[in-house]
Write a protein that binds this DNA or RNA. Structure first.
Lengths: 226, 226
DNA sequence: CCTATTGGCTATTGACATTAGCCAATAGGG
DNA sequence: CCCTATTGGCTAATGTCAATAGCCAATAGG
């Protein structure tokens, strides 16, 4: 029996490729093994579990997406940077739908490698928005909004949620443009009665030690389960 | 052996409740059966398959969410309606995370019931945006942006993507407010070189018969696979 | 009361992840 | 070049799950 010459990385890379074809959720070890010309239990010489493989694919995807938007943003600022980064983000996601899915998985508590990878990616967004001179929580709000906009659009687009034959590129550009417009008035007071009168979720009272830096979301030390 | 008195609806309702607890994806028929005091195969007297059950939960969820935002919007218009609807949307999603997940599943081609349910829900959004007097594709763009914003934020929030201890309610309100700001300038020309120079996805050339009504996404007659 | 339907059940199958244990292919030191 | 330790493949077995087949008692309706 000649050896197949697998490595941990080749298994992860193959899984990522297949995830883009069928989705990571419905990708089986048997299918990966078959593509690699190997029997299913052999994979366990290179991975520890399916969950571990999923984590590895997720880490790979987060790094790739972070690199893609980082490359797009270098040398630009303001609306220019926002457009460039948004397009790079969407182009990568459409090219890698299976990987994209898992870029949003939050790191498990204590998974410092995953946490670091995520900060690095979100840091790019933080930097791109920096030219708008937002301070403290206003900056966090803007970063959250931008992430929401990008993720929501791509998520709906790749799942087939935009079924009408209206140009999706145009819709995307209009949305991003709208965001840049909103950013120019980001700090104006919100004049709306409903914005504070909420029925649920009023469980975040203003606390003493609120963090006001521009540290990206995803790194708050969580209370460990006692 | 006394009968448990199950019905199709009671099974679907129980599945929906449990989906909110553990997620629909990791909900097993064995777990549902146990909660209902019945053995796993007995469920097949009321459902046809796991996939069918998922579809039923998805339909239930779409109806409930559509009703929630519809109730919130009645009697309001403009930014008022947008805020009310957004809050209703988020409140419902947070209360029903498992159900919310599957509200975004696009209908299977030819599933007219699912399609109709989805149109009804999106129609509420269309109506709410109507007061901004957008025409044709501009309206479609705005609806897509609004759906993206809401879905992206809720998706990130419920999955734990906003880890910083910065008030999430505030971030949400700022985002929605930003959208209303953007809407007031929705039709202004987009002045950005990158908005047309894209690397991929340039595969939607302006076509002759583009639909320009305000029919919600999700109902385009798809080409049947020949 | 009688009978047809139906809603439970047990048993079985097949896909899947995972583990145990075997054995040949390699690598690296003599 | 050989010898041995490691290691990367394998088969076999277990447990969980969805799904199907077939049984039989509980109900419903005349």
């Amino acid at each position: 029996m000649p050896r197949a010459g697998l490595t941990r990385d080749s298994v992860v890379e193959t899984a990522a490729i297949m995830a883009d074809e069928v989705g990571l959720g419905s990708l089986t070890l048997a299918a990966i093994a078959e593509r690699l010309g190997v029997k299913q239990p052999s994979l366990y010489k290179h991975i520890d579990s399916l969950a571990g493989l999923h984590r590895s694919v997720s880490l790979l995807a987060k790094r790739e997406l972070g690199d893609a938007i980082s490359r797009a943003a270098v040398g630009r600022s303001g609306a220019d940077a926002i457009f460039a980064m948004s397009h790079a983000y969407r182009d990568w996601a459409i090219l890698h739908p299976g990987r994209y899915d898992v870029t949003q998985n939050p790191p498990a508590p204590g998974d410092v490698e995953d946490e670091a990878t995520m900060v690095a990616a979100i840091q790019v967004i933080t930097d791109v928005l920096a030219s708008y001179q937002l301070e403290g929580d206003d900056s966090i709000d803007a970063i959250r909004a931008f992430r929401s906009i990008l993720h929501g659009f791509i998520s709906l687009e790749t799942s087939g949620g935009f079924a009408l034959k209206v140009d999706i590129n145009r819709s995307f550009d209009r949305m991003i443009h709208g965001f840049t417009v909103a950013l120019t008035q980001w700090t104006e007071p919100i004049d709306h009665s409903l914005s504070s009168a909420r029925t649920q979720n009023a469980k975040t009272p203003p606390e003493a030690g609120v963090i006001s830096g521009v540290r990206p979301d995803g790194f708050e030390p969580r209370p460990s389960d006692p």
